[in-house]
Design a protein around this nucleic acid. Sequence first.
DNA 1: CGCTTACGTAAGTAAATGCTAACATAACCT
DNA 2: AGGTTATGTTAGCATTTACTTACGTAAGCG
Lengths: 107, 107
Amino acid sequence: MDAALKALAEPRRREILKLVWSRELPATEIAAQFGDVTRSAISQHVSVLREAELIIERRDGVRRLYRANHSQMDRLRRFLEEYWDDSLERLRQLAETAEQERGNSNG
Amino acid sequence: MDAALKALAEPRRREILKLVWSRELPATEIAAQFGDVTRSAISQHVSVLREAELIIERRDGVRRLYRANHSQMDRLRRFLEEYWDDSLERLRQLAETAEQERGNSNG
DNA sequence: CGCTTACGTAAGTAAATGCTAACATAACCT
DNA sequence: AGGTTATGTTAGCATTTACTTACGTAAGCG
């Protein structure tokens, strides 16, 4: 999960991921979207995304088609939501404790 | 916003952020939570978090007290939610287009 | 003032990262 | 088989990162 978050922290990779979110794309077409960078660089970004399981590869003859792995994306999303919730939970608990303190010894 | 996401992609920094989520903590106490790393390392992580505006510093005499910047966290959260939504929107549009295509020329 | 406490910052380092240019490979076409 | 196409992989490079050790500094205490 950590790998996924790190992968997503890179703007270029976020763009790639968006490109293949709703449709399968061959590597060349992905690379073609980026004028300022080599095909090789994109290929390496794609590898990172694949290793983080944020995208899925399907082979079709010479081509390799990529698409977003929605379930992994969902997992990442939930991971972050738990992170926020966890922290908020702590806030809530702290507030409760403070409440009790006030009722008990204090005053 | 990008800096915030990158800052959050580091596990150690996520832990720090959790520590100061619901309460202010002085630098020393933050560092004390991590047995396997130097105070200096933590201080540098804190700097990264501060530059990403994920935490806020308040000075009190010798001490520096840190706490999470919830509004920035919310901003990051929304940024990510827009990212997912954006992508889902694209999915939806693609589905619609496909629907229309079917109605029009195709047969 | 001198000592301690609480902290940041600088210098140095090993590893990771983003990138380019060059090479390797596998599928298809003739 | 030979050539082209689609794509990954390697080597090399500059930059960034996570870290340690050492040093700097400001606040408070005697």
